[in-house]
Design a binder for these strands. Structure first.
Lengths: 233, 233
DNA sequence: ACAATGCGTATTGTCGACAATCGACAGGAA
DNA sequence: TTCCTGTCGATTGTCGACAATACGCATTGT
């Protein structure tokens, strides 16, 4: 399957955004990308256009596409949206989850616990890079699995989009130390437990607390300028 | 402000999707649109590309773009997503709403009441086209205002997207008769009341019931094939 | 008669080029 | 000095053209 050049360009550019190769406010020149990839401007333009409509890139006609300059509030909004969606999904998942999905969820929790143990052996109780990535990947899978069990693809995509945006214009240097990972594991455990018990209301509550926790962490560590004194007269 | 041709093409095509000029499954030929609009294929391609990334259009490489064939479940999912978002937003709006926004909300409710009265004078108590459109517009404004008061642009856009999709691949021939409009007005009233009282929990509850009501109506009237016997073994 | 195959056509994916427009910079006037 | 203005350069928006590919159709073989 020969991937179309547009898709290729899209993935390359998005990867650069996520990895932070291009930082906020920088301009995305289609011409530059075209030369870099050795292709024409047309596919690049379409790729950038897609980034724009996904909200990762800001666009000023006749001027160019700029990596979105994130505002502190936007980061908060992203988590707030998850706060609306995921507890709801957790409750629904509780009543719909299939045995195989539940098994997968339990497996994820077990692996997170293993990471907690592994972290104890790390110097300063701070997870190194591969361990951190493994942890993040598992956290991602945990949430994704619950969304999947809830059986609503649209909500799943909404949350996925939120997470991607946090990654792209958050670039939050969170230190993944033992307390953080341990708390996360405990919270995941509580959510899983509620689902196992079939207690939808509790699942929603635990999920809410978990996301509020994550929100707090990220907002504390993010480098964005704090909200400029909102008396809002 | 000279709108760019791409945006123009985007709006024209989207309008055709919403109005139902092009129906589900039909192919969107960029060449045809280019000739119709008297422009080149490039802007049209970018416009269609945007429709694709918004999920309104399905895309098969080397084959073309097809108007998405809606599934019954997808329609349900759209309302379910709103069910997660809007009650949450209603609760938050209750605690953040500004006086001018509240005034606007009250004004909208008054106008909806007027439409109820006007509907009583219609033959068969069925609203005619302009009255229906006025009603739909007000309903839209009501929800939008609450989302705005909640102060989360992302959630606002998510809901807007849901509504647009319902319009595009729903094409539900709902009869806007007196009972329907009256029920809606009553439900709006309840929500407004809860907000006025500052009762966030009640606002969320009323909003939830209101959306569940709308979901039921739409799913009943939609022409899509029902979900094919889900025993889900 | 039916299936398989090869051809023709139509449409897409991609390209390079041109014109319109925006930002920067220099130069002159108040 | 500071502000306005005209010009230059660079980049975008748009275009028409070409090559690659999928679909439909006719032809042929069994």
């Amino acid at each position: 399957m020969h991937m179309t050049l547009k898709q290729h360009a899209y993935m390359v550019i998005r990867e650069k955004l996520i990895s932070g190769t291009i930082h906020s406010g920088e301009r995305l020149s289609d011409d530059a990308f075209a030369k870099e990839l050795g292709i024409s401007r047309s596919p690049v333009r379409e790729a950038i256009s897609q980034l724009v409509s996904e909200g990762l890139v800001d666009y000023r006609p006749r001027s160019g596409a700029y990596v979105r300059i994130p505002a502190y509030d936007e980061l908060a909004e992203l988590y707030e949206a998850r706060l609306a969606l995921e507890p709801f999904a957790a409750a629904k998942a509780t009543e719909r989850i299939r045995p195989d999905e539940l098994t997968a969820l339990q497996q994820i929790c077990r692996e997170v616990t293993e990471i907690v143990d592994a972290c104890r052996d790390c110097p300063g109780h701070v997870a190194d890079k591969p361990l951190t990535e493994r942890f993040l990947s598992l956290d991602h899978e945990f949430h994704k699995m619950i969304l999947a069990a809830a059986g609503n693809k649209r909500m799943m995509r909404m949350v996925e989009d939120c997470k991607m945006m946090v990654r792209v214009f958050g670039h939050v240097p969170v230190v993944h130390d033992l307390p953080l990972i341990e708390d996360t594991a405990i919270q995941h455990g509580r959510i899983l437990h509620a689902i196992e018990r079939g207690d939808a209301e509790s699942a929603a509550k635990q999920m809410r607390e978990h996301i509020e926790f994550a929100q707090t962490i990220v907002l504390q560590h993010c480098l964005l300028p704090k909200p400029p004194e909102f008396g809002k007269t």
